[in-house]
Structure formats: C-alpha cells, structure tokens
C-alpha cells in the first residue's frame, strides 16, 4: 500500500469531502423539511392538494435523480429559465429527498391507529396538537429506520451531482485513480470519508430509537 498520492491530494480530497458533506446536508435538512411539509399537508386531506402532492411524490420517486439533475440544469435553460449549479443541485436533491421522506412519513402516520386521533380529538386537542403530541411520536417510531435508510442512500446519491460539475468525493476519487493508478488506496480513503458522514446519522437514529422505545413498548 502506498498512501503517498492520497496524502499529496489531501486538500483536494478535503475540498471534495466538504462538497459531499454540503450536498448531503442540503438533502437531509431541506429534504426532511419538504417531506415533513408534504406529509402534514397530506394529513389535512384537501382533495386537489392531495392529488398534486401525490403526483409530486410519485414523479420524484419514480424517476432517477440523475435525470432530475439533468432536467433542472440543462433542461430548464432551454425553456428560458437560467439555473446555476448550486440552485440546480439544491432544488433537485431537496425535491428528490423530500419525496422519499414524505412517503416514509406517510407510512408512519398511517400506522398510527385511528382511535388515537379520535381520543385526542374528543379530549379537545386541536389539529396541530393532535399531530404534534399524538401522531408524530408514534409515527416516528415506525418511520425512523426507513428514514435513516433514505438518508444514507441520498448521501451516496449526491455523487450524481458530478454531472452538473460538482467535484464531490466520487468524482475526485476517479480523477485521483486515473492520475496515480492507486485505486485501492484512493477508494479506501474515500470509503472512510463517506463513513464519517453516514456513521453519526446511524448512531443518532439508534439513540432516538432507544429513547422512543423507553417511552412505552
């Protein structure tokens, strides 16, 4: 093993690491916000809105992220809408993640027995209070494991942003491999860097799961 080329490229790798971290953060933070908003709006059960939200979820889950990135970055300008690299990555990744988060949360909400909401209604809780104090804690218990799965998957998927010119980790790895011909060392290093991002998320979710589990079986 010879890690000298990797070490020589440490600042480039750090730069790409931060890019991947940045794109992942957008996906998780904004995607979760979008997904939560969609599932709350869906819980309101307003006819037309429900149809629109369902179409959104189905379209963004049903097509590859790569295509969505292409569409926003190269397609929209053809329609006269200029989109720079950042906004293209931001919107495509957020909406893509949002659709998956929305679906996971919907399944969680549907797993909460109807009687729970009825009891809360009968006790006089408002719509928002029912959602926050009764539905959310119970839905999260169901949704958390698949939610973490969505996060980890999207962190890997951010590598697709390379097609619109982001020098994220995977792209940098390929460049270094081509340059130095040391695939094992480079990929090991990059693998570790991905792990550094994913690991805290798994740990955090385990912690939340334990906390939820303590609050009743």
């Amino acid at each position: 093993m010879n890690f000298a080329p990797v070490w020589a490229s440490r600042w480039l790798l750090l730069d790409s690491f931060l890019t991947t971290l940045f794109l992942s953060a957008i996906a998780i933070v904004v995607g979760t916000f979008v997904g939560t908003l969609v599932s709350v709006l869906r819980a309101l059960n307003i006819g037309v809105l429900n149809v629109i939200l369902r179409i959104y979820v189905e379209v963004f889950r049903g097509t590859p992220l790569l295509m969505q990135l292409f569409f926003v970055y190269f397609g929209l300008p053809m329609l006269g809408i200029e989109v720079d690299k950042f906004w293209a990555a931001f919107s495509a990744i957020s909406l893509y993640t949002g659709a998956y988060v929305a679906e996971v949360l919907r399944a969680g909400v549907e797993a909460v027995p109807k009687g729970q909401v009825e009891a809360a209604t009968a006790l006089g809780l408002s719509f928002g209070q029912r959602l926050w104090y009764v539905v959310r804690p119970q839905a999260l218990r169901v949704a958390l494991p698949p939610l973490v799965g969505v996060y980890v998957a999207i962190i890997k998927d951010t590598s697709l942003a390379t097609v619109i010119g982001y020098n994220e980790l995977m792209r940098r790895a390929m460049e270094l491999v081509l340059q130095y011909g040391r695939p094992l060392e480079v990929l090991l290093t990059v693998g570790c860097l991905y792990f550094i991002i994913c690991f805290p998320i798994s740990k955090f979710s385990e912690w939340i799961e334990r906390r939820l589990a303590r609050n009743g079986a």
Binding site: P113, G115, Q116, A119, A122, G124, Q138, L212, N215, G216
Partner: peptide, 19 residues
C-alpha cells in the same frame, strides 16, 4: 362543547407512547 363532553371508547384508545 368538546371541553364539556368526555368520551370513553370501546377500544380504550390510550396514547400508547405516554405513561
């Protein structure tokens, strides 16, 4: 009215995540 009316259900419907 809801504040003045209490209801007990066949299926109890206790909040399962709360003590």
């Amino acid at each position: 009215i809801r504040k003045h009316v209490g209801m007990v259900f066949q299926q109890f419907n206790l909040f399962s995540h709360l003590t």
